[in-house]
Design a protein around this nucleic acid. Sequence first.
DNA 1: CGACATTAAATGTAGGTACATATATTTGCA
DNA 2: TGCAAATATATGTACCTACATTTAATGTCG
Lengths: 151, 151
Amino acid sequence: MRIEDEIKQPIFRSELQKAHINLIFTAGWLQLRQATAFKCFGLTLPQFNILRILRGQHPLPATVALLIERMLDKTSNASRIVDRLEEKKLVTRTVCPANRRAVDIRITPAGLTLLEQIDAAGVDQVSGLSQLEEEELRQLNHLLDKIRSAD
Amino acid sequence: MRIEDEIKQPIFRSELQKAHINLIFTAGWLQLRQATAFKCFGLTLPQFNILRILRGQHPLPATVALLIERMLDKTSNASRIVDRLEEKKLVTRTVCPANRRAVDIRITPAGLTLLEQIDAAGVDQVSGLSQLEEEELRQLNHLLDKIRSAD
DNA sequence: CGACATTAAATGTAGGTACATATATTTGCA
DNA sequence: TGCAAATATATGTACCTACATTTAATGTCG
């Protein structure tokens, strides 16, 4: 559906304004689709993302600081997301022996099994970006990088 | 900064995976910048967006249903965002006389003044999309629309 | 007319984001 | 050594999202 129809706004002030709204809207659309796909596995999107980082580290542990570094959302509260994963027995938390300020977080066998099930279900096919050709994906990456170059 | 460095992940499995992450990350980056710009006016981003919709309707009222229809985030809770704006005296809520189930929501003079101040401060220059040429904006809009065509 | 579905908004709850502050541990240096 | 600064995480608060449920008003149709 065209962005004009999605938010019932027939005219945009400019191509810039339209692109801005389109970008936010499309990202939200993608995240909602993903979140819906994970829900039947009892995971939220941030929980899934952290679990995947932990699998990447496995069998080594990760610290909260490492999770934050790798997360898309730097300001989110990794500590509390780990709380939920711990309640579900998908990760363990132990004080790091080498540095007792830090906490070693590890994915459990149950966590690994769950991720395998999610992989098998092909949830990442929900991407929507598979609509784009390789060349278009490169174009998109270039444009997005350029937007953030305003920093 | 390149997306690889932003999230400390040196290699992406594919251009598709990279574009996906880039899209989510860039949208979040934009929203955080915007939110920061509004903060000194005491508004959150959703509050600002609703206030702007109300200005667009002014002097006609809007209903909650109309707000939801025009919001980027359809599942957000317009009713509670209006609560906060009402507390700040930026909008009024009155039962719609023609249909007593509905509620007429109107922006107040104080609300209009605040939006004028925000306009004057040039907050929308924070966009980041101003980095792109007109042709690039059209390209971006096309690519984003194509992603959502997966529906 | 009256029961029942529909519609409009509000409310409840779980979880997430943003940001400030607190607590515990380690490090650095006078 | 001892004490301040830095580091690692946890906690508090306000607000938001997602989604289910509730409450009230209106429509509809036998």
